[in-house]
């Protein structure tokens, strides 16, 4: 499905993108993600396709707002039956609840359900309308952090089973990894779209890279066979768009900064020497800061730290593998 929308209020934006399967729209707060979603549902005035000019009542969309907006005075099945008409509405509602695996909770009120269950009731209610498109606003935000990943994975599976395209807006990169198609939104426009593995591995702009969790971003200059970051020359295969002496951005993921083991042969290129400034546990990994010719944030998996036993203040060498170095033009829109 192709979307082309222009919105003036409450946020001015123009967006042209595709929805393919379970599509995730990633963007920071305030860029207009929710506005775009509401515009697709017909709740915010917009110009464009699909559903041009239709009021919300006549759009075949299923909208799940961030707080899900289940009717608190109705049971699960009554919520699902709300859009249905006719004598068979209870049976239909129960079937829909069966489809989302909540048949046995049909007589509970929303207040008695968990976050994930509420989400599935809201999904069943949206499905009752027979939508051609599902719209989900921040589906990971209302979930218990401990069980979030599993609950979201189940929800995404469930949505895929329905065979209905879905657009989920989020600022959670974890959700982006589950997508069939990924969109990245900046202020008032879509910055990049594509399959998630492509977008995650090669963001086209520094803003996209920042959103996707590239913690090490440096302005750099193109030189023969690589780039210069400050005084350091780093070797890497140059993309075809890169011109000599051009100002570019260089991005490296924290988990792709490699600590050199002294008992092993030195990697052939891009070895930097410096001091480890700090090292703090982060979940099962360790986050540290490397002060050398460039300053780098690094994220060590615990099996690496267990072997190396690094401590703050020590000298160490890190290597930046050419294929993990990602170049982006310094101005947006330079690559067509």
């Amino acid at each position: 499905m192709e979307v082309h929308y222009q919105i003036r209020r409450p946020v001015a934006l123009e967006a042209h993108f595709h929805i393919r399967g379970f599509t995730v729209l990633l963007g920071e707060s305030g860029v207009g993600k929710t506005t775009l979603l509401k515009a697709l549902a017909g709740l915010v005035p917009a110009q464009g396709t699909p559903f041009p000019g239709l009021p919300p009542e006549r759009r075949p969309v299923g909208y799940l707002p961030q707080d899900l907006a289940l009717f608190p005075h109705m049971t699960a099945w009554e919520n699902v039956a709300f859009p249905l008409r006719g004598p068979g509405r209870k049976e239909q509602a129960l079937k829909l609840l069966e489809r989302v695996g909540l048949r046995e909770h049909a007589h509970k009120r929303p207040g008695q359900l968990s976050g994930g269950q509420k989400q599935r009731v809201a999904l069943a209610r949206a499905l009752a309308r027979k939508p051609e498109l599902l719209l989900l606003d921040e589906p990971t935000s209302a979930l218990d952090p401990l069980t979030k990943d599993q609950v979201v994975a189940d929800l995404v599976d469930l949505i895929r089973q329905q065979g209905i395209p879905a657009l989920a807006v989020s600022h959670d990169p974890a959700l982006a990894r589950m997508a069939d198609w990924l969109l990245v939104m900046g202020r008032g426009r879509i910055l990049q779209e594509g399959p998630p593995e492509e977008v995650l591995a090669s963001p086209k702009e520094v803003e996209v890279a920042r959103l996707l969790g590239y913690e090490n971003l440096f302005p750099a200059r193109v030189v023969p066979g690589g780039v210069a970051v400050g005084q350091v020359i780093l070797t890497l295969p140059l993309p075809s768009w890169a011109r000599m002496d051009e100002e570019v951005w260089l991005g490296v993921r924290a988990e792709e900064v490699i600590v050199v083991r002294e008992d092993r042969p030195l990697p052939p290129e891009n070895v930097l020497e410096g001091v480890l400034e700090g090292l703090h546990p982060e979940g099962l990994a360790f986050r540290g800061r490397f002060l050398g010719p460039v300053t780098l944030t690094l994220l060590l998996p615990r099996h690496v730290q267990e072997r190396l036993r690094l401590h703050p203040g020590q000298r160490l060498r890190v290597a930046l593998k050419p294929r993990y170095l990602h170049l982006m033009p310094s101005q947006a829109g330079e690559i067509a």
Partner: peptide, 27 residues
Amino acid sequence: LDRNLLEVARTLGVPRGKIWLKVVLPL
């Protein structure tokens, strides 16, 4: 009244009269 409830009710294709009777008045 939670405005989201009213918005969602509209996106469910339900006529306004029914929204009033089943959502607005009961709450």
